[in-house]
């Protein structure tokens, strides 16, 4: 069930975008999301669409795969769009039927919200399709590194994230085993009312939690034994270094920001 979610799963194609420094992709995605919320009118979205299309094309991730990832959030998009459609007040009424009133402003807002959500999801999905969780963690660690001076434990957070990622498949396997073990003792997770089902889940969660704690204890010991003593004085096997393509990408991102915001706000 958890395995079916395609948003955010790395999709290796070996494209230029895959090889970019994760910091560039983080910054690009972040700025892209900001940009689409500044637009007041259509032209901005058109510029965004062109850039997004280009990035998707260069990344070589099939459009079909991206669309599949959007599927789970279609309901959310339609829901918010409908709310905007019916509950936006305005003078320019397009359609009226008793209490139901659709205004031109409402329609515009509904379309915008759909486009915004679509861009937001696709934009961030492209980042996760082209960046492994590890690179992402390293990018975050390096990008937020200066916060260390403000006593925010950036390295520790990054390490926690990468360890969490490492243990997801292990804990999923474990959960599978526990479900089988509990089912073989007569536990039923499929039938009964909600309360019964929730109490059934408890019988999975508690053993899972206990085993996760045991694993954490073991791992802490193993890390101690391998000389782990915090982020200070650590070196990296694969340190992040900007190359020419990263600087070029920063340039493209800058150009995008200027053109799209100008188009979205002033045309």
């Amino acid at each position: 069930m958890l395995r079916d979610i395609t948003i955010g799963q790395y999709y290796p194609t070996g494209s230029v975008i895959h090889k970019l420094d994760p910091r560039v992709k983080l910054a690009g995605t972040f700025l892209f999301i900001i940009s689409i919320f500044t637009f007041k009118n259509y032209p901005g979205y058109i510029v965004s669409l062109i850039y997004l299309g280009m990035v998707i094309f260069i990344s070589k991730v099939p459009l079909k795969h991206i669309l599949k990832g959007i599927k789970p959030i279609i309901f959310l998009m339609v829901f918010t769009a409908v709310i905007h459609l019916f509950f936006t007040s305005g003078d320019d009424i397009l359609f009226e039927f008793y209490a139901v009133k659709i205004t031109y402003a409402g329609l515009k807002k509904a379309v915008f919200i759909i486009v915004r959500l679509l861009f937001l999801i696709t934009g961030s999905a492209i980042m996760t399709y082209t960046t492994t969780p590890n690179q992402l963690t390293e990018g975050i660690e390096k990008a937020f590194g200066p916060l260390n001076k403000a006593h925010i434990p950036v390295h520790e957070f990054a390490l926690m994230m990468s360890i969490a990622l490492r243990f997801i498949p292990i804990l999923m396997e474990e959960a599978d085993k526990i479900i089988k073990a509990q089912s073989s003792r007569g536990a039923d997770f499929e039938e009964g009312n909600i309360i019964k089902r929730i109490s059934g889940i408890v019988s999975i969660l508690i053993p899972l939690l206990v085993s996760a704690m045991e694993r954490a204890k073991d791992l802490a010991l193993a890390m101690d034994a391998r000389c782990y003593h915090g982020g200070e004085g650590r070196t990296k096997m694969k340190p992040l270094r900007y190359t020419a393509k990263d600087y070029i990408s920063y340039g493209i991102i800058l150009v995008y920001m200027v053109t799209s915001v100008a188009a979205g706000r002033f045309i």
Partner: peptide, 23 residues
Amino acid sequence: NQIVANVVEEDVAFALENTGVPT
């Protein structure tokens, strides 16, 4: 429970990174 990294070679490097060995 004793493998820290998500890639074999990075795990082997873990102790070296901790002790500050150059890249």
